[in-house]
C-alpha cells in the first residue's frame, strides 16, 4: 500500500497502518536527518520527533497538495534544519564546519549511506550541475545553510545564489526526469 493511503489510515488511529508506514519511510527520514544533522545521537532524536509527528499530525496531510512522501520528507527536512541551525548558533560545531567550508557535502558522506539506484541517479545528476549550482543546492539542502550563509561561503552576491539554487533544482529535475 502506498504512503498516501497509509497516512489516511494513520489519521484514523490505525496503529497497524502506522507500522507499515514506518517501514516505508523510516529509512528516508532517518537518512535525510542524519545527512543534515550528522551527529548520530541527535539525528536519532530528530528522526524520532518527526516520525511521532507523522502519527500525531497525519490528519493534516492533504493528498491534493502533493504526495505523502513529499509531505513527510519536507517535514523531516524542516526539523533537521531547525536542529542544525540551533546547534550551530550554540557554536558547537564551529570547528568542524571551518574544515568543511565551501566543500560540497555529498562526496563526504557518500560512504556512510546505503547505495541505491535513486541515490546513484541523484549523484550522477548532481555532477551534471555546474559547481556553483551544485554547491548552492547542497550547502542549503544537505548542510542546512541559509542562502545568505551560502552566499557568504561561496563569496557570491545573494541574487546569484538564489538563481543558482533555482537553476540547480530545475536542472536536477530535467536530469532525473528519466529516472523516476
Amino acid at each position: 500500500m502506498a504512503a498516501d493511503e497509509l497516512l489516511v489510515l494513520v489519521a484514523g488511529g490505525d496503529q497497524r497502518a502506522f507500522e507499515d508506514l514506518y517501514s516505508l519511510v523510516s529509512g528516508p527520514v532517518y537518512g535525510l536527518v542524519r545527512r543534515v544533522v550528522r551527529d548520530p545521537a541527535q539525528s536519532e532524536e530528530v528522526a524520532q520527533e518527526v516520525l511521532l509527528e507523522l502519527w500525531r499530525s497525519a490528519a493534516r496531510f492533504d493528498p491534493r497538495r502533493g504526495s505523502a512522501l513529499s509531505w513527510i520528507l519536507t517535514l523531516a527536512h524542516r526539523r533537521a534544519v531547525d536542529r542544525v541551525r540551533s546547534a550551530r548558533a550554540a557554536g558547537e560545531r564551529e570547528q568542524r564546519e571551518a574544515l568543511r567550508a565551501g566543500e560540497p557535502a555529498f562526496d563526504q558522506v557518500a560512504e556512510e549511506v546505503e547505495a541505491g539506484l535513486e541515490r546513484e541517479w541523484v549523484r550522477r545528476c548532481l555532477k551534471r550541475l555546474t559547481a556553483l549550482q551544485r554547491q548552492s543546492v547542497t550547502l542549503a539542502y544537505y548542510d542546512g545553510y541559509t542562502y545568505r550563509e551560502v552566499a557568504e561561503r561561496l563569496s557570491l552576491p545573494l541574487g546569484t545564489v538564489k538563481t543558482r539554487m533555482r537553476d540547480g533544482l530545475t536542472r536536477l529535475r530535467e536530469c532525473l526526469g528519466g529516472a523516476a
Binding site: 529509512g27 532517518y30 546505503e114
Partner: peptide, 25 residues
C-alpha cells in the same frame, strides 16, 4: 521546486537504527 528537493532527500536514505522503531512504536 519542493518536489525536486525531495529527490535529494531520497538519495540520502539510510537504514534507521532498530531501537528507533521500538521507541517510536
Amino acid at each position: 521546486l519542493s518536489e525536486d528537493a525531495v529527490r535529494l532527500a531520497w538519495s540520502a536514505a539510510a537504514p534507521a537504527p532498530s531501537a528507533l522503531r521500538d521507541r517510536v512504536l
